[in-house]
Design a protein around this nucleic acid. Structure first.
Lengths: 225, 225
DNA sequence: CACTAATTTTCACAAATTTTTCACTGCCTT
DNA sequence: AAGGCAGTGAAAAATTTGTGAAAATTAGTG
């Protein structure tokens, strides 16, 4: 059964959608703001997230960005604001669809089904191997664990996020700026060498598999097997 | 490069979208009705299809149904009718997205990008893998690798940048000044012979394919196959 | 709320690598 | 044959990365 997380600050809206979702055979869960959504996503594995844009504490866009750091779950953005700017921004940070309020629950359900259907091939593959394995380096996306030759590696959060991002961009050259903006956040004001230090720690934790983290002199780094 | 098929009976609309698509780096093709769209899809491999619903000869829904029998290409439906019924119907027959006219070309492009990004793991990998091949010289732009007869060439950053720039200006005569200002930066204060030295190193690393780097006496260099 | 532990960030320095300079050689062109 | 221009090798200069340690930040706890 597919699990759906519904994020909106209005309880009424959450209820309506949840009811429909349940009727359609989904297992709905709710969050009232971006912070809660991020927390829930880190704990649970949802098959899709419906995310309102305008919310207290943490807005929908920022929440998606935060969630995407650790989970690759499809997201549909809900917004009362139908302006083009928002739409584009939503897609850019990787929303899979965008629905403008007021929407009909039926339409939302149809869009959920469309996305789940589309992702079913890759999703199923991903579900069966939610963990990636490169030689003796295993990354368990679900449990957020990394194993080096079967032994659990104790990575700090940043180290894990960095590895996760690099693995998801396997074979692609990543500049320090790109890494800082995607892993640390677009609003990070800091030293380039910060990346180096984390790469150092990551390498040291990956033991022999440090070999997968390639230095591209004058450029940045990349993960390559 | 991604190939997009634009299906609409109004030439004007096709033109506008095609223009935008080209600007965005897609390779647009057009069809004026459902029949033509089906025929073209059977012949060619498109990465995505934009399909109008209301068309003479064969309507959009039927066309998609027909296309899906032979090809599993993503489809975005375009429709002047924004009624919910159509939307649901569109998703049911497997449309990947649904845009209601009048739409802004920008929004359509954003949706195309969203879908292509999502599907990139399947067949389009070679498309995303921006790699150029000239004889036995292969340049993998994404991974920043250069292969000479399948063997990885260890280029220094400047060597890579120089090669990258020259390849992107294939067949064009490049003066030392132009190279210095474009590859090194407009603020570079230095000797002209610097270019020569890097060309030397690059040639030596490209082995037999040094032949692509042509000296233009009294002028500069160019890359030509 | 202060204290502790863990994590993240900054930073300076050494080591490694790359870039630049430059003198010299030799080839092309007129 | 001479003058100009490109090719080359090697040394010097500059840049970049790896790393350790200290400082700053964050989270957890009594």
């Amino acid at each position: 059964m597919y699990k759906v997380l519904i994020v909106d600050d209005e309880a009424k809206i959450r209820e309506v959608i949840a009811e429909y979702a349940e009727f359609e055979g989904f297992e709905p869960d709710q969050a009232a703001d971006g912070m809660e959504a991020v927390a829930k996503c880190k704990q649970n594995d949802y098959d899709i997230v419906l995310m309102d844009v305008m919310m207290p504490k943490l807005d929908g866009f920022s929440a998606v960005k935060e969630i995407r750091k650790v989970k690759d779950v499809p997201v549909i953005m809900l917004s009362a604001r139908g302006e083009e700017y928002d739409k584009l921004f939503g897609f850019e940070i990787g929303a899979d669809d965008y629905v403008v309020k007021p929407f009909s629950p039926k339409e939302v359900m149809a869009r959920i089904n469309a996305i789940l259907k589309r992702n079913c091939n890759s999703k199923n593959q991903k579900n069966t191997n939610q963990s990636l394995k490169f030689d003796g380096l295993e990354i368990d996306m679900l449990g957020r664990n990394v194993y080096v030759d079967g032994q659990k590696a104790e990575l700090t959060p940043k180290e894990y996020e960095l590895l996760f991002y690099m693995v998801n961009n396997k074979g692609i050259a990543l500049s320090r700026e790109k890494l800082l903006s995607d892993v640390w956040g677009y609003d990070f004001y800091g030293d380039d060498r910060t990346v180096d230090t984390h790469i150092k720690m990551l390498r040291s934790n990956l033991k022999d598999y440090r070999k997968f983290i390639i230095t591209l002199r004058g450029m940045g780094y990349k993960f390559e097997t």
